[in-house]
Amino acid sequence: MRPYVRDKKTFSIDEVPVNTSFEAGYLVSVNSGWRSIRPVINSTKCVGCEQCYLYCPDGVISVCDGKAVIDYDFCKGCGICAKICRPGAIRMEAER
């Protein structure tokens, strides 16, 4: 479970909360547009050690069936995962 993007993204005057308190983890926008480079996982090299998952400042990496998976909606392309990956399973590639 993690905060996720909701369908309802704008709030009219009547819909704005009555106080400065609202549902935790309510997202309306992604961060993918920030990226100039993207991490790409080489599944053959990935050993599922979870170092990338641990050190990702945005928490966008999870390990599924022993392999790292990236949520590209929220990855900012910082490259920390590629640096931390000992087997060299993550390569940064230019966004097109």
Binding site: I13, V18, N19, T20, S21, E23, G25
Partner: peptide, 28 residues
């Protein structure tokens, strides 16, 4: 009150509101 920390229905409180909604909070 509903304006409180709630473990069954977690809240983000005392947040920022930009020019698009800030005036509504002030009107309220």
């Amino acid at each position: 009150t509903d304006n409180r920390i709630d473990f069954n229905n977690p809240k983000n409180m005392a947040f920022s509101a930009g020019p698009d909604t800030n005036y509504v909070f002030k009107f309220r």
